[in-house]
Amino acid sequence: MAENKEELKKRLTPIQFEVTQKNGTERPFQNEYWDLMEEGLYIDIVSGEPLFSSKEKFESNCGWPSFTKPLKEEKVTEHLDTTMGMRRTEVRSKNADSHLGHVFPDGPPPEGMRYCINSAALKFIPKDKLEEEGYGEFRSLFED
């Protein structure tokens, strides 16, 4: 059963709640994962659903974590966002419906996409902690 907003408000930090439940955005270059390049998995802070891998993370100089693609396309949804006088594509987690960030068509080849994701919407699981955190099935992503 999904948590209600009051339960989430107690469990998440204020910025995590603002970003995931109120479509907020954290400050660029002042968030937890914008420059983290360690190998591991990025999961939805609300549901624990694996969303992105460090294998697809790249330095975009935008101030937020950026990925070329999600771990599995079907785990995220895309929606037209016309707020703030712009036309953008919002990215949400499918299972928890958490606001994650936006996707732009200015990423590196071959995908050419930049999933610009708020750190506050994610939890990072380092590759050496995957098993103990319950994500051992993803260990093979980081083996040469």
Rank of each mutant, 00 (worst) to 15 (best):
R139P: 00
L71K: 01
G112M: 14
D128Q: 06
S98A: 12
G24A: 08
S119E: 11
E131A: 11
I43C: 09
M113E: 15
P65W: 03
F67H: 06
G136E: 10
R27E: 15
G48I: 07
S93R: 04
H99T: 14
Y42S: 07
V103F: 01
G48F: 13
T83R: 15
G48W: 14
E132S: 04
C116F: 02
A121V: 02
T68F: 00
E6G: 06
E7Q: 13
S98N: 09
T13C: 04
E137H: 01
P110N: 03
H79Y: 10
D106K: 15
I15E: 13
G107R: 02
V19M: 10
N118R: 11
E133H: 12
E74A: 10
D144P: 15
A120Y: 00
K127F: 12
P14Q: 04
G112R: 06
T25C: 14
A121R: 11
I43Q: 01
T82P: 08
G107T: 12
T20W: 03
K69T: 04
G85C: 11
E3Q: 11
R11L: 06
L71V: 07
E131L: 04
M86H: 13
P28S: 05
E132H: 06
E90I: 00
S53W: 03
I15W: 04
D81G: 12
F17I: 09
P28C: 03
F142Y: 15
L36P: 04
P70N: 02
E73H: 11
T83A: 13
N61W: 00
E18P: 00
F142I: 09
P50E: 05
Y42A: 09
A2G: 10
K123H: 03
E39A: 12
T68D: 05
V19I: 05
E133W: 12
D128T: 08
K22T: 14
K72M: 04
R87P: 03
F124I: 07
G48V: 06
P70K: 05
V76W: 01
Y42P: 02
M113P: 06
M84G: 00
I15Q: 07
S47G: 15
H102D: 15
V91G: 04
V19R: 13
M84A: 10
P105W: 03
K10I: 07
L51E: 06
V103G: 04
K75R: 11
T89P: 02
V91Q: 05
K9W: 03
K129S: 13
A2V: 15
N61G: 11
L12K: 14
R27Y: 13
R11Q: 07
F58M: 10
K129I: 06
Q21S: 02
L51T: 10
E132Y: 08
L122G: 05
H79P: 07
I45K: 11
E111Y: 02
S60R: 08
R88A: 00
T83H: 12
N118V: 13
P108Y: 01
Q30G: 03
L141R: 00
E137P: 00
L122R: 01
L36Y: 00
V46D: 05
N23I: 00
E73P: 11
E56L: 08
T25K: 06
M1I: 02
S119P: 05
N61R: 10
K94R: 09
F124A: 13
K123Q: 06
M113D: 08
